[in-house]
Design a protein around this nucleic acid. Structure first.
Length: 884
RNA sequence: GGGCGGAUAGCUCAGUCGGUCAGAGCGCCUCGCUUACACCGAGGAGGUCACAGGUUCGAGUCCUGUUCCGCCCACCA
């Protein structure tokens, strides 16, 4: 075994082993209970970032643990075609080449896309393999697979036939760059600093009314002016008309509650064709809807050639200038507000009227609300259930059509007789009248429409496949909160409607990984961290342990590579303690001799102490899996493995391991050391699979993989009263050792056995006083003067039932005073506790255990302070010199 | 406008039922290459738990308000 754990040298080998053993493959014919996760499919066009690495690692950790617990685990991977995102990427490529998709034509464009999918799909899976994920690769799915397309069409047709999908002209969020509508959930709001223009509209028959707008160019499409109902300034004007500048159109003044009288001038120009609020107002007052903008974002006003064809920004300036000349523009003010952008391409959205396909959501939402209210679908952390419910209760219809080239075609045709119908396979004639003059719908579906079917479509739905029967519904969904609306909610709705079952019963929301400065990681900022870089630098295990440590606990986390590095060190530590056991217990080669199982009475107190530590660790790790608090699990594993096991147990056991004269003792230590390491490795395996596999190979009980070993469960006698007693007493011993070491160093003594003289006595039941003294002498290290209290030193350190008397050979008198620091700490603690005990309310109302605890600690502190004053003095240099 | 989260050591973060809760890792200081590990070991310094009130015998923890930071929702022209 090498002195250092080298992840690069073992990872490939273990990945191959897991693949050979088909660890990730679930057996559809098995009778074992299942555990199923549908991997949130990453966009096929991208590479995985640290956020993916975090969420996916947690899923693999869940899967590995469930396998060890005996479940048949199916973790089904896949990728998403990401229509708009992919199209944008390819279009940018084409632009760089000086061409366009239109010039290329549909077929050639599709060929480019297919090549792109081919190239990138494999890359994502390769990244996942490098991180050690045990997905069921055989079942991997792509949202463009034929079976998947079939599922989409079945869902669409059912919703269409039942009237939940409809087509209609409505005001939509239009992206002029993508030339497509997008849904409300795909808007990214950004703050803009704009100008608020005050425009004076002349009232017919005399007078004027001033409106405020940030978009003067839209006044070309105004069809009304609105004021708040009952606004005394304008009440008399309601019902009159104004004649618009530039267009000369006469439009009415109406009163509508959507108008806030305190904003701007209290009067609103109404442009139903280009503003959602205005659209509603216009609808209520039967105002005309006039469109003045083309789908490409330029003005579409042939009757006003000076503006026709201008892009929005230019049109805004031109119209404002014209209004200024006409004396209509009476004032401007700076105005900061949020403007909607396309979340895919970043372009400013233009609200405009367009024919689109919509899903009526209200009816679909009701059962999806019920399952979360009842807890049948539970969110972790819990508060996200409220986020979900609030959105669901206010849900609006979903615009599912996109005017782009890529994606799933909307499976609808219209015949020459005007019948519009949805189909599963492309028809040759009208389903209603047989007319063969069919026109297909030109639009494609929102990518999220297909994603919404993921948990059941991946298993073959709508066919009653064996996979579907066995693996659906899934157990848990692990994802980020940013797609609760876009994805999680819609999966729950479609699952309940089409499979009569919730698609998963738990939703685990993971943290969002930010850049080091707290900003979003994004390619454009160049602050994206590639998980593979981290794997190469620190090893896959370190990345995975980091993921578990930061991915839960609900706080967004700033990326800090040092935190990954800490787990690399941890891996090395465990590797080396394994090495130590191999060197001490090696039976030739690099595998330890299997120790005989000791009789319980052969175990020393420290052995029992370690077993109790293990029992507690395994309880805590189990609890962390139940509550999805992986950061707890990682920190408990880290502490127990490093500190309890390496720093204390192994140090205590070392002597016995080397003492071949006392076989029962040596055997008990060996058995305990190996048993503990084996349990730690198994508990840690879901988090750090490579390291734990590699270490476990050196243990006597080695299996082909830890995935075939059982999840640790501690026997009852690790938790019984004798064990607890031993644990407590060894705890005292550890405390004593630490205090002696501190005193030694404070007083400038070398870490040398001869510089500390130790006498230990006390009341111990599980840990004999001779044994305690021997251990303490070894651990400090110190010279054991007399285990029966005949030494000359006064008491110094009382902890629990132990009393240690020590004498330290100080380097210099001045440094001896350093003990005064401990005294000052003790004095303030003593004062605080005395005050507390002097408080009647505390004595009367605090639980007895708490009061007793304070009394006990006070007594200990007082005893220690008293003893310290005798040996060390109070810092004034008048310490008694203890020699021996 | 409504809501959620955060503010704890120099940095990044834990802290569940109010009472060993003043913690970890990194960084820093002092020792130590002791036959597992210097990617290590031993010890140490360092915090008015954002601020102000309140509840309580007792508050980092519960309540109210305030200030900053991040995010979400919303028909802020």
């Amino acid at each position: 075994m090498e002195k250092q754990f080298r992840p690069a040298s073992v990872e490939l080998r273990w990945r191959q082993r897991w693949e050979q053993l088909a660890i990730g493959h679930a057996d559809v014919s098995s009778r074992r209970p299942t555990y199923v996760i549908a991997l949130p499919p990453p966009n096929i066009t991208g590479a995985l970032h640290m956020g993916h690495a975090c969420g996916f690692s947690i899923q693999d950790t869940l899967c590995r643990q469930k396998r060890m617990a005996g479940l048949d685990v199916e973790w089904c991977p896949g990728t998403d075609h990401a229509a708009i995102a992919t199209q944008n990427v390819i279009e940018r490529q084409l632009a760089d080449e000086g061409t366009t998709k239109e010039a290329l034509g549909r077929a050639a464009f599709q060929a480019r896309v297919d090549a792109w999918y081919e190239e990138y799909g494999g890359r994502i899976y390769e990244q996942m393999r490098r991180l050690g994920y045990t997905c069921d690769w055989v079942r991997s799915r792509f949202t463009l697979d034929p079976e998947y397309v079939r599922a989409i069409r079945v869902v669409f047709k059912e919703l269409f036939d039942s009237g939940l999908i409809y087509r209609g002209p409505r005001i939509v969020n239009w992206c002029p760059r993508d030339r497509s509508a997008i849904s409300d959930e795909e808007i990214e709001w950004r703050e803009h600093r704009d100008t608020l223009y005050h425009l004076r509209y002349p009232i017919d028959g005399g007078g004027e009314i001033v409106v405020a707008t940030v978009r003067p160019e839209t006044m070309l499409g105004d069809t009304g002016v609105a004021v708040a109902p009952g606004d005394p300034r304008y009440a008399p004007l309601v019902g009159r008309t104004v004649t618009l500048p530039l267009t000369g159109r006469r439009v009415p003044i109406v009163a509508d509650s959507a108008v806030k009288p305190e904003f701007g001038t209290g009067a609103l120009k109404v442009t139903p064709g280009h503003d959602p609020t205005d659209y509603e107002i216009g609808h209520r007052h039967n105002l005309d809807v006039i469109t003045v903008m083309a789908p490409d974002g330029t003005m579409d006003v042939p009757s006003l050639p000076q503006f026709h064809g201008l892009p929005v920004e230019q049109a805004r300036e031109a119209v404002a200038a014209a209004l200024r000349v006409a004396g209509v523009l009476v004032a401007t003010e700076e105005y900061v507000h949020d403007v909607g952008h396309c979340d895919r391409c970043g372009h400013v959205l233009e609200p405009l009227i367009s024919e689109q396909w919509w899903v009526r959501m209200h009816e679909l939402a009701q059962p999806a609300i019920a399952v979360v209210e009842s807890g049948e679908v539970a969110f972790h952390p819990r508060r996200y259930a409220d986020v979900y419910l609030t959105w669901m209760r206010n849900i609006r219809d979903w615009c599912i059509s996109r005017q782009i080239w890529l994606g799933h075609a909307i499976p609808v045709s219209r015949c020459g007789n005007g019948h519009t119908f949805a189909w599963l396979e492309h028809p040759v004639a009208c389903a209603h009248c047989g007319d063969a003059q069919l026109v297909d719908d030109p639009d494609v579906l929102d990518t999220w429409f297909s994603s919404a079917l993921w948990p059941f479509a991946i298993f073959g739905w709508p066919e009653e496949t064996a996979d579907l029967r066995r693996f659906y519904p899934t157990d848990v969904l692990v994802t980020g909160r940013d797609i609760i609306f876009l994805w999680v909610a819609r999966m729950i709705m479609t699952g309940l409607r089409f499979t009569d079952s919730k698609p998963f019963s738990e939703v685990m929301i993971t943290s969002i990984i930010q850049a080091a400065d707290g900003s979003r990681m994004s390619k454009s900022k160049g602050n994206v961290v590639d998980p593979l870089d981290m794997v190469e630098r620190y090893g896959a295990d370190a990345v995975r342990a980091w993921a578990a440590a930061v991915g839960t606990g609900s706080q967004d986390v700033r990326f800090d590579a040092e935190r990954i590095e800490a787990y690399q060190r941890f891996a090395n530590k465990l590797w080396n303690v394994t090495r130590l056991l191999v060197l001490s217990l090696g039976g030739g080669g690099e595998v330890m001799h299997a120790p005989r199982t000791p009789n319980p009475e052969e175990l020393q107190a420290e052995d029992r102490w370690m077993l109790v530590e293990l029992a507690r660790l395994s309880d805590d790790v189990d609890a962390s899996f139940t509550t999805y608090r992986f950061h707890d699990a990682v920190s408990r594993l880290y502490d127990t493995a490093w500190h309890s096991y390496c720093d204390w147990y192994v140090e205590m056991a070392k002597l016995r391991l080397r003492d071949s004269a006392d076989e029962p003792s040596r055997n008990a230590a060996a058995w305990t050391a190996i048993t503990a390491l084996d349990a730690i490795l198994r508990l840690l395996h879901p988090f750090m699979p490579f390291l734990t596999e590699e270490c476990a190979q050196h243990l006597p009980a080695a299996a082909p993989t830890l995935q075939h070993r059982e999840w640790p469960a501690s026997p009852g006698w690790w938790r019984d009263e004798p064990a607890r007693q031993a644990h407590e007493e060894v705890g005292w011993l550890i405390d004593v050792v630490q205090r002696i070491r501190a005193l030694r160093q404070e007083r400038g003594a070398e870490r040398n056995r001869e510089h500390v003289a130790l006498v230990l006595d006390g009341d111990t039941r599980a840990l004999g006083i001779d044994r305690a003294a021997a251990l303490a002498a070894e651990l400090v290290p110190a010279t054991l003067v007399d285990a029966h209290g005949n030494g000359a030193s006064p008491d110094v350190i009382p902890v629990g039932g132990l009393r240690a008397r020590i004498a330290v050979r100080a380097a210099a008198p001045a440094e001896r005073a350093a003990g005064g620091k401990r005294l000052r700490q003790l004095d303030s603690t003593i004062a605080r506790m005395r005050a507390q005990l002097g408080n009647e309310g505390f004595i009367r109302q605090a639980p007895g255990g708490v009061v007793d605890g304070v009394r006990r600690r006070l007594a200990e502190a007082e005893a220690e302070a008293r003893a310290l004053r005798e040996t060390v003095g109070d810092g004034s240099g008048q310490a008694t010199s203890q020699q021996w």
